[in-house]
Design a protein around this nucleic acid. Structure first.
Lengths: 185, 185
DNA sequence: GTCTATAGGGGGATAGAC
DNA sequence: GTCTATCCCCCTATAGAC
């Protein structure tokens, strides 16, 4: 792995573990074993680094969506949930939630990139739910975009809240959503 | 209002606006019009200040619960939602969400206090849902504590996510939850 | 690409005068 | 209770050698 990618992945980890304002070039430097000045060669500013982190998420998200394109809606939704399951396993929160709470402290370029990522997530979950509803697999009474927001907010916040109420609450939420979607009311 | 309370309320505002690691004694100093050294007279350390902020939330939450004790479950739930509606109005996020994302960067005493607040919130919403279900006003198929977690996570995260997807999404979520709870499936 | 050295600012906290 | 003065540390970022 290139040094650039090592920095990128570690920054990604740190933002989801500690938040934007708590992670420093020294954190990266110490762990990777290069000096902070060297990091600036790969990413001129902290803003540039965070933008690259978000873009990596956008790319990986698109790749996940693509890899599941011909699967059934349940498999797609499980694929979406696996992102958060991995976060929970590492006791991290999601990038969108982490940066959204810090939104008023970051560069406008970061805010713009984050809106792109959030829009992409919302669009994909909306598509999955739409497809499942049309196939008679998912059942819900509210507009599909609204249902997508409800599910995304459940995921976003349970990785945060379960840090306080108990780690098992993540699986509880995940399974409940999957069950509830497939139940005929 | 005492200087102590002024500091407390401003710190509360800043944590929900910018996050724990982004707000400084200088922010407080500049706005209030006293020097940073004077703030340490009222709160020896930043940790002490944040703990006082959380305790104020615990007290106000208990007061809200008490003031609605003899009301119907729908009124109680609307009262709970009004906390987040006020946050959304000011484009802030909730204290629990803000500090949960920064959890690994704060003192253990803060973590403990925050767990108390989260537990209190979960208990109250669980009680409200239980009462509504027993009265035949609310309808849901999952365990009552689970349903409480789903609703709380919707609220926690929609104040974050709607910073990115659009402020109107808050009301959408609020009304959808209230409608869905009262719908017979 | 990575280093040393350093600039320039901001952070929380304390001592002691008033 | 609030002030001035100060300490010491951490932060992002840059210049220039290697």
């Amino acid at each position: 792995m290139t040094t650039r990618d090592t920095i990128l992945n570690l920054a990604d980890h740190l933002i989801k573990d500690k938040g934007f304002n708590a992670f420093s070039f020294h954190d990266l430097s110490r762990t990777i074993g290069i000096k902070t000045a060297s990091i600036h060669y790969h990413f001129p500013t902290k803003t540039d680094l965070v933008i690259a982190v978000i873009r990596q998420h956008i790319d990986r998200f698109a790749a996940l969506k693509e890899s599941l394109a011909d699967k059934d809606p349940i498999t797609k939704l499980r694929g979406f949930f696996s992102i958060y399951a991995q976060l929970k396993k590492e006791n991290k929160v999601c990038l969108v939630g982490s940066l959204a709470t810090d939104l008023h402290t970051v560069d406008e370029r970061i805010q713009g990139e984050l809106k792109t990522l959030a829009g992409q997530i919302l669009d994909w979950v909306t598509d999955i739910l739409q497809e499942g509803q049309e196939q008679g697999i998912f059942h819900f009474d509210v507009p599909v975009r609204t249902k997508a927001i409800l599910i995304i907010t459940n995921m976003m916040a349970i990785v945060q809240l379960s840090r306080l109420t108990g780690d098992d609450d993540f699986k509880l939420v995940k399974y409940t959503i999957l069950e509830e979607l497939q139940t005929t009311h």
